[in-house]
Amino acid sequence: MDILSHFNYWVVVVLMMLGFFIVIARGNLIKKLIGLNIFQTSVFIFYISTGKVIGGSAPVLSSDIQLYSNPLPHVLILTAIVVGIATTSVGLALVLRIYRAYGSIEQDEILEQSRQ
């Protein structure tokens, strides 16, 4: 197997895992949301990579173009980006309320307060 042929996918896997790591390993709630953001964006990069056809061009029809990249992943990811920002804004709204209620957004400080 040609290394280059799968290089994109492997890099994207690394990106996803870096984002995923931030979500799990960090205790700051905003940092968790940032990690989630990176994780999702990396999945978008994966989808868009699968739609690429080498030598193709953007899928806007024109009589002098023969080969186009696949438009369907683009459509799906447009929707997914919107879902991502919707989740981020709801998450941040929760963080703001958590801060108002606990005076902190660090996971272990909040847990400590909850136990009392």
């Binding site: 940032i34 964006t41 061009s57 980006i81 919107v82």
Partner: peptide
């Protein structure tokens, strides 16, 4: 990757709206 529409949206969201909301939260 030839995904111009997605690029437009990601630039608006990933480098625009989402940092803005994050900054507003951090300001609080």
């Amino acid at each position: 990757m030839d995904a111009v529409d997605v690029a437009f949206t990601e630039a608006a969201v990933g480098a625009g709206v989402s940092p803005l909301l994050l900054l507003l939260s951090v300001a609080v």
